[in-house]
Design a protein around this nucleic acid. Structure first.
Length: 617
RNA sequence: GGCCUCGUAGCUCAACUGGAUAGAGCAGCUGACUUCUAAUCAGCAGGUUUCAGGUUCGAGUCCUGACGGGGUCACCA
């Protein structure tokens, strides 16, 4: 659909050739949209040609413009030159044909780029506590990325890896055993993941209490006296020492580690408790996922993958890519690639995180046949993935070039980082409930939707609330750290999800008014388009390439920006011209077609973000 | 400290990868609903793009350095 632009580029290339005998491929010509303070639709920057043509920019632009107007009148209606910028005016009949092309285009004009299978991993929760705001950003980014990749032709496998084992869940289990009094989600009516999180907190409280007592015990006093840095005050010393205390002196620490050992040995009781409590957590997570509107195609559990990767280590040793240290540990040296040495097997032969990830990648490649794998993980793990990918390259795995870390920035609060110790972590379930509640309030105040059933109304509140939340998180460049202001996230006006939904609802409302009325579909006699109409068409034309770009750059925020811009232009159009009471039948038909298409594209763009569109609001 | 990363309006974010007078939203002020949904539109105000150099026709964008924030440098995950 961009046929028009292709035609324009070819014309420009022809012009450069005939006027200046300058040969250039049309694909190398870069056109920008003309800024709104100037006349014209598209702009060619002629500065780059000045050097080879040895002419002043204005001369080049003038001669080229004049040639285009004379020799390609069907493409270029007029032009003007400002400094080195050639602004090109497009004949109105082109907008008609462009709209028609857009209307008929398959897949909304999104090009099919690649049909390689790709795996996207976008959730990796620990089972010792509920999901929070950070997980939400992670999940939404991954979900959107999956939809975008599907839109350009990839079969996508959406995966989750559950960190279901380790010391953390043992802490929750131990605390539950000690203080739980057999409490279950049923007896307490607490959501399963929250209940397990409650005991995780309980463990840390108990540990802290125990630690404080220890600090004034004989042993504690002795350790403090013997500290290396004598200048360090007590509270700071003990803060630093906590980890060591946990591992060496703590009774609770000892018991938790015992439990982990029992778990690894397959102790029936421990395993039973583990399965039971993890089961509660999964029920809880599933509710949250359902509320967020996300699903997964394949689940992986760390308890099943944590031993993987040892064969890869062997393979690396055999090929000489890895080496064994004197104490038996296995390492990889990546210093020639600007990285460090990294351990892959401990001296006792057990695997580390990296080993596990190597094994999991290989397993996924075999199982899913995915040569491309995208890991949606926070930027604190940038280095880890850099190393992981380098190792895979070193081993020349067939999927080595298809690995990508979609790294996103942390979510901060206006008060700073979320800190579980300070209780500032924004809980996922609470947050979802709050945005919906906010919408309910606003809707009741506006007195809208009173004529429909309670359940329909609630569904719309849910759609709007989630749109506000999701759009708020997705409009920001994924790589950037962002500030989450709870007040702003429930905003329903301005640059928000509901603003976009509102544009859609307005169109649907017009459609409802039409009923069975006949619409004259002949739009050709509508000649003089309104600027707001041209603006809309120009936006619609770019949808396909926007999606393509979002796919290649792994950047859902591009879709969010697009949807916002398109809605903004629609609201302006809606305000400036009358649709149902248009000045002529053909104007009316034209505007209806245009509006319909805006609705279709908006709905699709929002679908790529994982946001539903209500028909009323 | 080494490496990575970010720094744009009071606040939250854009800026088509080097193009015109740096744009939106929120917050503030002013106007527009008997009209197709005002969850909207129009306007005012708000900037030395952290600072200092450099590259060139042209820099928020590229290079060097400084300052400031964040991350990461475990036989943790």
């Amino acid at each position: 659909m961009v046929d028009y632009l292709a035609e324009l580029k070819t014309s420009i290339a022809d012009g450069l050739n005939s006027v200046f005998e300058y040969k250039i491929d049309a694909s190398e010509i870069h056109l920008a949209e003309t800024k709104k303070e100037f006349q014209g639709a598209y702009t060619l920057v002629v500065f780059p040609f000045t050097r080879t043509l040895r002419k002043k920019p204005v001369e080049i632009a003038e001669q080229l413009g004049s040639w285009l107007q004379d020799n390609r009148p069907q493409v270029v209606q007029g032009y003007n030159v400002v400094k080195g910028f050639l602004n090109i005016e497009v004949p109105h009949h082109f907008w008609h044909s462009v709209l028609a092309q857009i209307y008929e285009a398959e897949h909304h004009g999104i090009p099919t780029m690649d049909s390689t299978k790709v795996m996207v991993e976008f959730a990796s929760p620990n089972t010792n506590k509920p999901l929070h705001l950070g997980h939400i950003r992670n999940i939404l980014l991954g979900w959107s990325m999956s939809k975008i990749l599907e839109a350009v032709g990839h079969p996508v496998c959406k995966t989750q890896i559950v960190n279901d084992r380790g010391i953390a869940i043992c802490k929750s289990m131990l605390a539950w055993k000690l203080y739980g009094d057999n409490e279950t989600p049923e007896t307490s009516s607490i959501k399963g993941d929250h209940l397990v999180g409650k005991y995780y907190r309980k463990f840390n409280e108990a540990l802290q209490e125990e630690y404080l007592k220890w600090q004034s015990s004989e042993e504690g006093i002795r350790i403090y006296k013997d500290r290396d840095n004598q200048a360090l005050p007590g509270d700071q010393f003990f803060k630093q020492y906590k980890n060591q205390y946990f591992n060496q002196y703590s009774r609770l620490g000892h018991e938790a580690r015992e439990m982990l050992l029992h778990w690894e040995e397959g102790d029936t009781d421990v395993r039973a408790l583990w399965e039971r409590m993890n089961g509660w957590v999964y029920d809880g997570f599933n509710t949250t996922y359902e509320n967020l509107g996300v699903t997964f195609d394949k689940l992986y559990y760390e308890s099943e993958t944590y031993l993987l990767g040892k064969d890869i280590v062997q393979q690396g040793l055999d090929s000489g890519d890895f080496y064994r240290a004197d104490d038996g540990s296995v390492w990889v040296d990546l210093e020639d690639r600007g990285l460090d040495k990294k351990i892959l097997l401990r001296s006792d032969g057990t695997s580390v995180y990296m080993t596990q990830d190597l094994g999991t990648a290989k397993m996924r490649y075999r199982e899913l046949g995915a040569k491309r794998m995208i890991y949606v993980v926070g930027d604190e793990q940038d280095y880890h993935f850099q190393v992981l990918f380098e190792i895979v390259k070193k081993l020349k795995e067939p999927y080595a070039d298809g690995l990508y870390h979609l790294s996103y920035g942390m979510v901060d609060l206006p008060t700073g980082r979320m800190k579980s110790r300070e209780g500032t972590v924004v809980d996922a379930d609470d947050l979802i409930a709050e945005v919906i509640q906010e919408v309910r309030h606003a809707a009741i105040e506006r007195g809208e939707l009173e004529d429909i059933s309670q359940s329909e109304r609630e569904n719309i509140y849910r759609q709007i609330g989630l749109a506000a939340l999701k759009f708020f998180l997705l409009k920001v460049n994924a790589k950037k750290r962002m500030v989450f202001d709870p007040k702003e996230s429930v905003d329903l006006q301005g640059q928000t999800g509901p603003y976009i939904q509102n544009a859609f609802v307005r169109i649907k409302s017009i459609r409802r008014k039409l009923q069975e009325e006949d619409i004259d579909l002949d739009t050709s006699s509508y000649q003089q388009l309104d600027p707001s109409e041209i603006d809309l068409i120009k936006s619609l034309m770019t949808y396909g390439e926007t999606v393509a770009k979002a796919a290649t750059t792994h950047e859902p925020s591009l879709i969010a920006s697009f949807a916002y811009e398109l809605s903004k232009k629609f609201h302006k159009f809606y305000h400036d011209v009358s649709i149902l009471k248009a000045e002529s039948d053909s104007a009316r038909a034209f505007r209806l077609q245009l509006s319909d298409h805006v609705a279709t594209v908006l709905e699709h763009a929002m679908f790529l973000l994982g946001i539903e569109m209500p028909v009323r609001m």
